[in-house]
Simulated scan of single mutants.
Amino acid sequence: MKKLIMLMAAAALAASMAQADAKTGQKVYLKTLKAKFGMNGTKFAAEHTVAEWEELFADDAKGFIKEYGERFPAAVPVLANPAMKEKLQDIGDFAKEYGSDSGNVPSCG
């Protein structure tokens, strides 16, 4: 019984940590990219499925930078900034958490 409680506590902690990254990514998206992309967080996250977001954010988000840099040239300086590397992973966590097929809806509509 004690092991089960410890396992459940560890799972809850892991889930809350994943949610924290998505929350951070949501905040970063709203602060740095919303104006550049011209869409709120709900519309942004729904642009791709979870699997598509995973692919775009793989390999240091190179696919994301390429696709969204081509679509939104004004965002290229922000997307290519080395200081954004970690923040892009948080944005990726946000996008994957609320992808079009995730069943989740962010509160940043």
Rank of each mutant, 00 (worst) to 15 (best):
A18F: 08
V50L: 02
F72N: 03
N81P: 09
K85T: 07
K2W: 08
K31I: 00
E52M: 05
G99R: 00
K3W: 11
E52K: 05
G92P: 09
I5A: 15
F64G: 01
T49N: 06
V76Y: 06
K96S: 01
A18R: 13
G25S: 10
D59H: 10
A15N: 14
F94C: 07
K62V: 04
V50H: 04
A74K: 15
D21W: 06
L7A: 15
K85Q: 13
A46T: 02
V78S: 05
A51I: 09
I5W: 11
G109V: 00
E86C: 00
M84F: 07
T49G: 04
A10Q: 14
K62S: 13
I5S: 12
L88D: 09
V28F: 06
F72I: 02
N104I: 00
D101Q: 08
M39E: 15
D59L: 05
D21Y: 11
A80R: 12
F94L: 11
K3A: 12
K36F: 06
D93M: 12
D93T: 08
A83C: 04
K43A: 01
D59I: 08
A12H: 13
G69W: 12
A61G: 03
K27Q: 12
A22S: 05
A22G: 01
Q19H: 12
A51V: 12
M84K: 03
A75R: 07
R71D: 09
S107Y: 08
H48T: 01
K31W: 07
V78A: 03
A10R: 12
K3Y: 13
G25P: 05
L4W: 09
Y68P: 05
K85P: 04
G99L: 00
K96P: 04
G103S: 02
K85C: 03
D60N: 11
E55K: 04
C108D: 14
F57Q: 02
N104M: 07
A11R: 10
V76K: 15
C108S: 13
Y98A: 00
E70F: 07
L13W: 11
K34N: 11
A15Q: 14
V50W: 02
K96R: 15
F64C: 01
C108F: 06
G63D: 12
G38V: 04
K2R: 13
S102W: 11
E67I: 01
E97A: 01
K36A: 13
V76H: 07
W53N: 05
A80D: 15
W53L: 04
A35V: 06
A11K: 11
L79W: 10
D93R: 10
K62F: 07
Y29P: 04
G38C: 11
V105N: 02
L33G: 00
E55L: 03
A51Q: 14
A45R: 01
S107D: 14
K23A: 01
A12D: 13
A12W: 09
T42P: 02
K31D: 09
D60Q: 14
C108H: 03
M6R: 13
